[in-house]
Design a protein around this nucleic acid. Structure first.
Length: 443
RNA sequence: GACCCUAUCGUCCAGUGGCCUAGGACAACGGCCUUUCAAGCCGUGAACACGGGUUCGAAUCCCGUUAGGGUCGCCA
């Protein structure tokens, strides 16, 4: 066994879209590197420069960063094997092309450069799928691959292999859709006189019904969609770990630090997996519930800002306290503005169904009594509020729910929300009294 | 069509010859708890694709069938 250092890479093409399957490929590479103290490299395969834009590259950075997948070499961080954009590696490709040409592996075909297959049986050693033999003897089914177009631009197979050689990649961990490409790549390694890396083809992510691989049009196929919907990033990363891998002990929620030592290539499943957004959302809820208040605020603030709520108009301590009462109450942050909006505007409407039910003649005197009790209350905290409201139930001889429902509706406009006692404490006396007054006028 | 991969509840995962009358999770359904909504707790239904072998014994090993997925580009 050689002690060659583990060097893996994620090599996306900047299309302006980071596929969730690509993200998982990046994750598995990252896990493997972290487990072995290796190097995780980001390489941008922008051979088709018509599509290559700064925004498209940014999408990749943003998605990886959001998932917490930091790269050790690549754009933004540098490294000794750069540049990390294929569009900037032309001289290197020319050099390797010359090597192949000198060895007689190439021929011209209408201006394009093609690699003459050795017409052999190629064995691909795959850490996930095992050894697979491919018979390349029939040109009809395995035509010679083109490696350079007439316009001088490069084809994926060639530059991908050259870069993996140049960057000393030890393990090529990629989607199973590349499995059939591997024998071609192995032939290139042979022609270049380089020992191929270890391959590991990981199963594909299928759409929810399992019919075909998840594609751009499918819900949840883009990492950006999870960012927009407000999933907990650690939950999406956790869910991705569980697609094709498992800790073997029935754990579902598992910290990434606990995944690293357990992860290994030969533990990866061979079968494709359908993506279950529902379970991913459930995990998101679990993470929100258990994360620290600070982490939750950090994620929640931008979600509210994006919905047009200007948090800077409120005292930071108020915003923090308000967000803390909402932590773990929604699974996705996109639902937070509707859930917590009442904290940040007095101009809300009453849920019509709830109003019909709770803004009644009976509730009017109760609301008035609650208003008076709260007005006189000192100190004004959740505990005291609870005690004061409970005292009222004896007076009216009702279950406390009969008092809390109308009060919640009056102060938040909704029949669902954070703990009423806590929300009232955060809202404060002044707002509460004004809101109850407004509600009374509607009854 | 050719080649390659795969095959356990609707979905994800556990199970690597006996501990399996197959376990967990999401989802579904029922109940409890409860200041709303969630959450939590308890419970129910739900699977080894099929056919042959091998073996004292198979979800686990072999072969075939079927089904699903992938690849067959001057896309990556």
């Amino acid at each position: 066994m050689s002690a060659a250092p583990v060097r893996v890479r994620f090599a996306p093409s900047p299309t302006g879209f980071l596929h969730v399957g690509g993200a998982r490929t990046a994750l598995f590479n990252w896990l493997y590197a972290r487990k072995h103290g290796g190097t995780f490299i980001l390489r941008v395969e922008d051979t088709d420069d018509a599509r290559n834009t700064q925004e498209a590259v940014q999408v990749i950075y943003d998605g990886l960063k959001w998932l917490g997948l930091d790269w050790d070499e690549g754009p933004l961080v540098g490294g000794e094997f750069g540049p990390y954009f294929q569009s900037q590696r032309n001289a290197i490709y020319e050099r390797y092309l010359g090597q192949l040409r000198d060895a007689g592996h190439l021929y011209d075909d209408a201006g394009a450069t093609r690699f003459r297959s050795l017409r052999q049986t190629v064995r691909v050693e795959d850490a996930v799928c095992g050894s697979i033999d491919f018979d390349l003897s029939d040109p009809a089914t395995h035509p010679d691959m083109t490696i350079r177009r007439p316009d001088g631009s490069w084809i994926f197979h060639f530059v991908n292999v050259v870069d993996d050689i140049e960057m000393k990649i030890s393990h090529v961990i990629r989607g199973e859709d590349h499995l059939s490409n591997s024998p071609k790549h192995v032939e290139l390694y042979q022609a270049l006189g380089v020992k191929p890396p270890v391959f590991a083809h990981i199963p594909l992510i299928l759409k929810k019904d399992g019919k075909g691989k998840m594609s751009k049009r499918d819900e949840g196929s883009s990492v950006a969609s999870y960012m927009v919907d407000g999933y907990a990033p650690e939950a999406v990363r956790n869910y991705l770990c569980l697609l094709g891998w498992s800790p073997k002990d029935n754990r579902e929620k598992i910290e990434i630090a606990d995944v690293i030592p357990l992860f290994d290539l030969d533990k990866i499943n061979r079968g494709n997996a359908a993506f279950d957004l529902e379970k991913c959302a459930w995990l998101s809820g679990e993470y929100f519930r258990e994360m620290t208040n600070e982490r939750h605020r950090e994620l929640a603030r931008p979600a509210l800002e994006r919905a047009g709520i200007d948090l800077s108009a409120f005292p930071p301590a108020y915003v923090d306290a308000a967000l803390d009462t909402c932590k773990g109450k929604v699974r996705l942050l996109k639902d937070l503005p509707a859930y917590a909006g009442f904290y940040f505007t007095d101009d809300f409407t009453y849920d019509p169904q709830a109003a019909a039910k709770h803004f009644t003649a009976e509730s009017k005197p109760r609301l008035e009594a609650a208003r008076d009790a709260l007005a006189a209350l000192e100190p004004f905290d959740a505990l005291a509020i609870e005690a004061a409201l409970k005292a009222l139930t004896a007076q009216f001889r009702i279950k406390i729910a009969m008092l809390l429902h109308p009060l919640r509706l009056a102060t938040t406009g909704s029949s669902a929300g954070p703990s009423l006692y806590h929300l009232l404490e955060v809202l404060g006396k002044e707002k509460i009294l004004a809101r109850v007054e407004r509600a009374l006028s509607h009854i």
